[in-house]
Structures are given as structure tokens and as C-alpha cells.
Write a protein that binds this DNA or RNA. Structure first.
Ligand code: SF4
Ligand code: SF4
Lengths: 128, 128
DNA sequence: CCAATTATAGATATTATAAATCTATTATAT
DNA sequence: ATATAATAGATTTATAATATCTATAATTGG
């Protein structure tokens, strides 16, 4: 019942990028790594997932780096969570009788409330 | 972002106990272990936490076992989660600037919705 | 083309935590 | 006294997250 550090890093990196978005310049992972105090290689690995999910873009080589996509304002916190950790279930039923089940239903309801809250939080909301 | 197997076991054990509650008899961990297909020692360790939290009682020795407390109907799913895994935070801030923070706030809101849903689910609701 | 820069990929190592077992001890009924 | 049953502590196993290392590919500027 815990989000990953990777998600934490990703959110912070994004907030940092948003703050620097005025520059419209590509930000190398070096900068982010320095700001967040996380190793460049690991952070890069994390950010690559955000690239794959198409919320930021990346360019290799000199003067390269990461940059927010145009639609970033509408990206939700949940989008980031999924991009990093994939779709998760809160409750792993060890037995799974398959049928409609109250335990499952209770957990699912909780999970859906959690998810819908995070869907309503957009990156824009994190920085205002 | 996952509940523990121990919580899963505890909930199932409780549901099983509720089903047999008519007997008003103490249920040895052996029975539960058989029903859930989990080792007696491990399940016992899990249930001991529920005992400590005072949602069930236990008696050692022959004809001993576990039994629901009188107030069991009002025990919530969240109570069980806390009894097993303790109070958890969904989001572990790697940096923690302390001040009011949007990232924290978003995660906290999600967490509170999750928790309040589980607080509203009582054991009684799992078996009706 | 060359050298420097930067992201990516794959393999591997490290760490942390949960899950499970084992053994010994304590409590209780008969 | 004996069998039964919970509890406690130490230890092991399993699993996943975190992190590092190395090599490769892409891009820029000269
Ligand atoms: S009772 Fe529900 S949660 Fe438990 S094993 Fe059956 S289907 Fe799964
Ligand atoms: S921005 Fe918020 S979540 Fe991030 S380090 Fe600061 S206080 Fe913590």
C-alpha cells in the first residue's frame, strides 16, 4: 500500500520541468538529477517510461534532454503512476473464487476511489 | 500500492469465523489453516495481531482457539488493515520540504479517500 | 569525419520487505 | 500427566524495488 520511489522521482522531475518550462529548452537528466539528488542513470531510466507514455519527449546527443509535451497540463497524477508502475491492483486475492465477492467488491471500491482522485489531479494542479 | 497477503489471510479467516459464528465455539487455527490453505504457524502469527487489536480473542490449550469478539460487526476493513500492517502512508516523500505542498496534498487526498472507503466497510458487510 | 554530449538498453548488483518456516515456550482442558 | 493449542523469537526464503555499471545509439558543432 505504497507508491514507488520511482513515481516520487517522476513527479518531482516533472514539477521541476514545469518550473523551467518558460525556457522552452531541453533539460538534460544531469540537471534533474542534481535538483533531485538522484543518480542520472536511474532517473533516466524512470524518465524513459514517461517518454514511452508520451508525456515528455527526449532527444539524444549534445543539446539534447527532456522536454514537456504540449498537452502536459492535462496529464493526471494517475497517468504518471501508471506510466511508472503500470496498472496495479490494491488487493491481490490469494484464492479468487471468481464469482462476485464482498471482499473483492470492498477492495475494488476503495481502489476506484483512490484512482479517481488521482485522475482528477492534473500536473497543472501540482504547481499552481 | 498493494495490500499484504497477511491482510488477505486475515480477512478471509475472519469471514470464515463469521460463517461459523453460530456455533459460538472456539476455532483452532488448524481449521482456519485448512480452510485457507495457509500454514498454521504463519496464520497464527497473523491472527495474533488481530487478537492484540482486540477484534478476536484467543485461548491456549485443549479446546482453545480463536473466537470473534462481541463487537465484531462494527469492525471495519480498515481496522483489520491497520491491525496487520500498521498505519501506512501511500506516498513516501523522498525529500520532504515540510511546508504545505501540492504533491503531498494530492497524495494525501487520495489516501484519505481510500481510507474512508475502507472505514465504511464493516466486517458485517463482507458476509451479508 | 571527429569529438563531445546525451539518451537508452541490458545485465547485474544491492537493499529492503514480505512471506514463511522452525523451534521452543506457555497456557489450558481432561 | 498428557494432549492440545496459542505465542514468541530466531531464522530462512522469496520477491520486488532500487540502484549501478557498461555498452550502444543518436545528435550537435566543428
Ligand atoms: S472470498 Fe472473495 S476475495 Fe476471498 S477468495 Fe473468494 S473471491 Fe477471492
Ligand atoms: S515538493 Fe512536496 S513532495 Fe516534493 S519534496 Fe517538497 S514537500 Fe516533499
Amino acid at each position: 500500500m505504497k507508491f514507488s520511489k520511482a513515481t516520487d522521482y517522476a513527479l518531482h522531475a516533472l514539477v521541476y520541468m514545469i518550473h523551467r518550462d518558460g525556457e522552452r529548452t531541453k533539460i538534460p537528466v544531469q540537471d534533474l538529477s542534481l535538483a533531485l539528488n538522484v543518480s542520472t542513470t536511474y532517473l533516466s531510466k524512470v524518465l524513459t517510461r514517461i517518454v514511452k507514455a508520451n508525456y515528455i519527449s527526449s532527444t539524444s546527443g549534445a543539446k539534447g534532454g527532456y522536454r514537456l509535451q504540449q498537452n502536459w497540463e492535462n496529464v493526471s497524477v494517475y497517468d504518471i503512476v501508471v506510466a511508472i508502475d503500470g496498472v496495479q491492483t490494491l488487493f491481490e486475492d490469494s484464492f479468487d473464487h471468481g464469482e462476485e465477492c464482498r471482499i473483492q467488491a470492498a477492495m475494488m471500491e476503495a481502489q476506484e476511489n483512490l484512482i479517481s482522485t488521482l485522475k482528477n489531479k492534473r500536473l497543472k494542479d501540482l504547481t499552481v
